[in-house]
Computed example of a mutant assay.
Amino acid sequence: MTARPLTTIGFDADDTLWQNEHYYRLTEEHFTRLLADFAEGAKISERLLEAEKRNLAHYGFGIKGFTLSMIETAIEITEGKVPASVIAKILDTGRDLLSHPVETLPHVRDTLETLAGKYLLVLITKGDLFDQERKLAQSGLGDYFDAIEIVSDKTAVTYRRIFSKVGDGPERAMMVGNSLKSDIVPAIAAGSYGVFVPHELTWVLERVEEPKDAPRFRRIVHLGELHGLIDGLH
């Protein structure tokens, strides 16, 4: 009997299973309004992005690092004159991000219900540990997954390690997500299938070109198409 080509499916969380970037965008808009007396909104956003890039190596991904980057940007934009009251409001916006409601995306629950039990399902997400655990708990999706992996970054090494530990190795695994940079390209480099599910909002630091020539690259419009794609592999 020929072994099944696919036994394990990894899912990204933010903007694949539930909304996330939407809340960051709203927070950034509020942040630019707080500093409107010191610079134009586009300039503030540009400086914030630069701070985020610098700080990724220090704070990692997630809300806490984003909040610290906002504070750093406020200090830079105002040349150290930012009022303490504005810093307090920035901290408040960061706390608000940590308590935003969890809104699952279309087709998520039906898709997980269909695949659970047929395949090993693994949630693979990066970001702040407490925040990701909170969102997973509030989503009510945790029981569908055989394993949960909250990681500091997603690389080919990450996927090889997880799919070898949880499943039958990366060659018999698939990663599904909205980020080409984090979910798709490194998973394919590890030897897995990479299924790209575009989201209308994607953080600029997660954007790269689609690996269209990669034999294991797939693209679907929404998660409702995933089961049919998987059936086509068998």
Rank of each mutant, 00 (worst) to 15 (best):
residue 73 T to H: 01
residue 198 P to E: 05
residue 57 A to N: 08
residue 134 R to M: 07
residue 88 A to Y: 12
residue 94 G to H: 07
residue 148 I to S: 00
residue 172 R to P: 03
residue 44 I to C: 00
residue 169 G to Q: 11
residue 41 G to I: 03
residue 12 D to L: 09
residue 132 Q to G: 09
residue 93 T to M: 12
residue 101 P to H: 03
residue 111 T to L: 07
residue 200 E to M: 06
residue 218 R to L: 01
residue 74 A to Q: 03
residue 40 E to K: 13
residue 34 L to M: 14
residue 154 K to Y: 01
residue 87 I to E: 10
residue 152 S to G: 04
residue 15 D to L: 02
residue 7 T to Y: 04
residue 174 M to Q: 00
residue 145 F to L: 11
residue 25 R to F: 09
residue 233 L to M: 13
residue 39 A to H: 05
residue 79 E to D: 11
residue 199 H to I: 01
residue 23 Y to K: 02
residue 83 P to A: 08
residue 33 R to D: 15
residue 13 A to V: 07
residue 82 V to R: 00
residue 10 G to I: 09
residue 71 I to Y: 00
residue 40 E to S: 06
residue 68 L to C: 00
residue 150 I to T: 03
residue 182 S to T: 01
residue 27 T to P: 03
residue 58 H to W: 11
residue 38 F to S: 09
residue 22 H to L: 13
residue 53 K to V: 12
residue 3 A to F: 05
residue 85 S to G: 00
residue 65 G to I: 07
residue 175 M to E: 08
residue 113 E to D: 15
residue 86 V to N: 06
residue 217 F to G: 00
residue 218 R to H: 13
residue 130 F to S: 09
residue 227 H to C: 03
residue 21 E to S: 10
residue 223 L to Y: 04
residue 21 E to R: 04
residue 229 L to T: 04
residue 185 V to T: 01
residue 30 H to V: 15
residue 214 A to T: 05
residue 179 S to A: 14
residue 188 I to D: 02
residue 222 H to G: 02
residue 182 S to V: 00
residue 102 V to A: 07
residue 156 A to R: 08
residue 24 Y to R: 00
residue 65 G to Q: 05
residue 8 T to R: 10
residue 60 G to D: 10
residue 63 I to Y: 04
residue 69 S to M: 01
residue 34 L to I: 06
residue 35 L to E: 04
residue 129 L to E: 15
residue 131 D to Q: 13
residue 12 D to K: 09
residue 84 A to P: 00
residue 100 H to F: 13
residue 36 A to R: 14
residue 44 I to Y: 03
residue 64 K to S: 10
residue 147 A to T: 07
residue 142 G to C: 00
residue 6 L to N: 07
residue 49 L to G: 00
residue 22 H to M: 10
residue 51 A to H: 05
residue 186 P to S: 00
residue 187 A to I: 01
residue 218 R to D: 02
residue 163 F to E: 05
residue 62 G to C: 10
residue 56 L to P: 04
residue 56 L to H: 07
residue 85 S to T: 13
residue 198 P to S: 08
residue 124 I to D: 05
residue 102 V to K: 06
residue 206 E to Q: 14
residue 54 R to W: 06
residue 47 R to D: 05
residue 147 A to N: 07
residue 181 K to R: 14
residue 194 G to W: 02
residue 131 D to S: 15
residue 233 L to A: 02
residue 101 P to K: 10
residue 77 I to G: 02
residue 96 D to N: 12
residue 231 D to M: 10
residue 32 T to E: 11
residue 156 A to K: 09
residue 194 G to Q: 04
residue 81 K to L: 08
residue 33 R to I: 08
residue 144 Y to C: 08
residue 79 E to R: 10
residue 162 I to Y: 08
residue 150 I to C: 02
residue 181 K to H: 03
residue 160 R to N: 14
residue 113 E to R: 15
residue 168 D to L: 11
residue 169 G to C: 11
residue 227 H to K: 12
residue 167 G to W: 08
residue 224 G to I: 07
residue 58 H to G: 01
residue 209 E to K: 14
residue 167 G to D: 02
residue 18 W to T: 06
residue 217 F to C: 05
residue 3 A to E: 14
residue 59 Y to P: 02
residue 16 T to P: 02
residue 2 T to F: 04
residue 144 Y to M: 03
residue 61 F to W: 11
residue 160 R to M: 08
residue 150 I to P: 01
residue 53 K to C: 12
residue 174 M to K: 04
residue 211 P to E: 06
residue 200 E to H: 13
residue 34 L to W: 06
residue 85 S to C: 04
